[in-house]
Each structure stands twice: as structure tokens, then as C-alpha cells.
């Protein structure tokens, strides 16, 4: 029997209660909005990329359920210091993890702490909450000026 604690792991509860990198960056050169109209989750992601293409700083603000807030918080931790060119691969790894077959173990080596979100696979209506921040980040680094949606 799948336990609710497999979704709401302590790490997720903690990140929801005290989200990391929350607020507006003093200096940023990319940003984007994310919005899931059906559930009302709203995010804004701020990114400061330096001349070497490194994500020097990243933050988010907004409101949403525990899954969307914790996912955004964990994402900012995972991406800070990484290069922008690495982002598409991480995006794909994360997307794969949350939509993969239940039997498939998440690739903890590639995903690190993000693997705590693997539990959303059991909750199809909540996958969109976990990926909203990633789509918003994608809009930001691509400067698409489109509001990201995952519904």
C-alpha cells in the first residue's frame, strides 16, 4: 500500500514550511511567470546568469500547494552554480522521474535531492504541481516571455 508519507516526505514538508531561495533577486537577467489556472498555483522564477553561463543565483516567489513550493525550493538548490547548458538534461531527468513507471527507481546519482519528489508518480493529478517550476525555469532561461503552464 502506497503511503502518504511517500509523497509528503519530511524533506518536502520542510521545504514547504521554509522554502529556500524565496523572494526577488537583487540582480537578475532572466525571469518568468508560471501559472496553473485550474489549481491557482503561481510562481515567478528569477535567474542571474554570469558571463561564463553559470547560474550564479536563482530564486522564486509565489504561492501554491506543498508539492509546488517544495519542488521550486529544491529546484533552486539543485540549479544554483550549475551551467545553463546543463539545464535541459536536468529538466529531462526530472520530467522523466515524475512520469516514469512506478517500478523504476529514480536515478539518485543524476537527480540528487530532487529524487524525493519521485513519489508524485503515484498521484497523477499532482504531477503538474511538481513540474510547474521547471517549466517556469525553462521559460526564464529561454527568455520566451511566455507564462509557463503544466495543465
Amino acid at each position: 500500500m502506497f503511503d502518504l508519507r511517500d509523497l509528503y516526505m519530511q524533506v518536502i514538508v520542510d521545504h514547504n514550511k521554509a522554502p529556500r531561495n524565496f523572494g526577488v533577486l537583487k540582480a537578475y537577467n532572466h525571469d518568468a511567470d508560471g501559472y496553473n489556472p485550474l489549481c491557482g498555483d503561481k510562481l515567478h522564477v528569477y535567474v542571474n546568469v554570469n558571463d561564463d553561463d553559470i547560474i550564479e543565483d536563482i530564486s522564486f516567489e509565489g504561492e501554491g500547494c506543498a508539492i509546488s513550493v517544495a519542488s521550486a525550493s529544491l529546484m533552486t538548490e539543485a540549479l544554483k552554480g550549475k551551467s545553463v547548458s546543463e539545464f535541459p538534461a536536468t529538466f529531462n531527468d526530472f520530467q522523466h522521474m515524475v512520469t516514469a513507471d512506478i517500478a523504476e527507481e529514480p536515478d539518485e546519482e543524476a537527480l540528487g535531492k530532487l529524487a524525493v519528489l519521485a513519489g508524485v508518480r503515484e498521484f497523477p493529478s499532482r504531477i503538474k504541481c511538481a513540474v510547474l517550476c521547471w517549466h517556469t525555469m525553462k521559460s526564464a532561461v529561454e527568455d520566451s516571455h511566455k507564462v509557463a503552464v503544466t495543465e
Partner: peptide
């Protein structure tokens, strides 16, 4: 302390 969507998922289970 609990967002309505988290609540929906938890009470569903």
C-alpha cells in the same frame, strides 16, 4: 497549515 490541494490528496487516500 495545509494547502487545499494537499488536503484534497490526503483525504482522498
Amino acid at each position: 497549515s495545509v494547502h487545499p490541494h494537499d488536503l484534497g490528496t490526503i483525504v482522498d487516500r
